[in-house]
C-alpha cells in the first residue's frame, strides 16, 4: 500500500464559548503551527490597566518571554522613554535587573532609590548593573535573562543592536519566560525581533485648577506589535494601581459623532 502523502491534519480547534476565548484559542493554534512557545494562561501578562491599550496586545498585556523595544522620538525624549520603561518595571512583580551602559550614565544619571520609590518601584527589588562597553551591556542583559533569579529585565542600551544579538535576546527571553524591556537610543530602529515597539515622545502635562503641574504625559506610539494592532495614545502616568491613563487616543479610533469630540486645550 502506498504511504499516505497527505500533510498532518491541523490540531483540532477547541470549542470556545465567548469571542475572546475563541481568539485566544486561535492565537495559540497559530503559535503552535509556527513553532513558537504557546503562552501559558497561568503566566500572567503585564497589564497596562487601561483597556484601550491592553486590547491591542495579543495576550491582553506585555507577554512573558517577549522583547519590548522603547525608542524615544528625538534625544530630548529619552527621559520620557526611560519613565515609560520604569512604569512597566513598576507594574511588574518580583526581583528585576536594570542593565545600563556607561554612555547613558553621564547623560541620564544613575538609578536613584528615592526617585524609584516615587515611581512605584521598591529599590530592594533591583539589581543595578553598569557595563563599560556596549558589548558588556549586551552580555549582561543576556546573562540576566538566562538567570532564574529574576522576573523582569530592563536594558538601557547606548548603541544599535546587531540582528544576531537581537535574535539572541529574543531566544533568551522566550526560554526565560519573563519580559525584556530595551530602551534604545533615539536614532536607532530598535531590535529586529521585538514583539512590541513603542515610540515615546514628550507631551505637555495638564494643569490642575490651581495652575500646578499635573502628572507627566507622553505621546506613545505602538509602532510594531506582533499578532496585534498598532496604535497611538497620549498617556498620563499615574500612581497606585492605575499606572497609566489614556488621555487621548490619536489613531485607530472609531469616528465619534462631531459633538462629542473633546478638544485639547
Amino acid at each position: 500500500m502506498a504511504p499516505s502523502l497527505r500533510p498532518a491534519a491541523p490540531p483540532p480547534l477547541p470549542l470556545a464559548r465567548t469571542p475572546t476565548e475563541a481568539l485566544v484559542n486561535l492565537r495559540q493554534t497559530i503559535a503552535r503551527l509556527e513553532g513558537r512557545p504557546v503562552a501559558e494562561a497561568a503566566v500572567p501578562v503585564l497589564r497596562f490597566g487601561c483597556p484601550e491599550i491592553d486590547d491591542h496586545l495579543p495576550g491582553g498585556g506585555i507577554a512573558p518571554g517577549s522583547v519590548n523595544d522603547i525608542v524615544p522620538v528625538g534625544y530630548d525624549a529619552t527621559p520620557a522613554a526611560l519613565g515609560f520603561a520604569l512604569a512597566l518595571l513598576a507594574a511588574s512583580q518580583g526581583p528585576a535587573a536594570l542593565v545600563q551602559s556607561r554612555r547613558l550614565e553621564a547623560e541620564l544619571g544613575q538609578p536613584y532609590g528615592p526617585g524609584l520609590q516615587d515611581a512605584g518601584i521598591d529599590p530592594a527589588r533591583l539589581l543595578v548593573v553598569s557595563a563599560d562597553s556596549e558589548a558588556d551591556a549586551q552580555w549582561a542583559v543576556e546573562e540576566c535573562l538566562t538567570a532564574a533569579a529574576l522576573s523582569f529585565v530592563v536594558g538601557l542600551l547606548g548603541a544599535p543592536l546587531s540582528p544576531t544579538v537581537g535574535r539572541r535576546f529574543s531566544l533568551a527571553a522566550q526560554n526565560a519566560g519573563h519580559p525584556l524591556v530595551l530602551l534604545h537610543p533615539h536614532d536607532t530602529a530598535g531590535s529586529n525581533t521585538a514583539d512590541t515597539r513603542w515610540l515615546v515622545a514628550t507631551a505637555p502635562a495638564a494643569r490642575d485648577r490651581f495652575g500646578a503641574l499635573g502628572d507627566p504625559r507622553w505621546t506613545v506610539t505602538l509602532q510594531r506589535n506582533r499578532n496585534g494592532r498598532t496604535g497611538q495614545w497620549i498617556l498620563e502616568s499615574g500612581h497606585g494601581p492605575h499606572r497609566f491613563r489614556v488621555v487621548e487616543t490619536l489613531a485607530d479610533r472609531p469616528l465619534p459623532a462631531p459633538a462629542t469630540i473633546r478638544r485639547r486645550r
Partner: peptide
C-alpha cells in the same frame, strides 16, 4: 566580568 563595583544594590 564587569567588576564588583559595577553590580550593585541601592542602599
Amino acid at each position: 566580568r564587569l567588576g564588583a563595583a559595577s553590580v550593585r544594590h541601592l542602599s
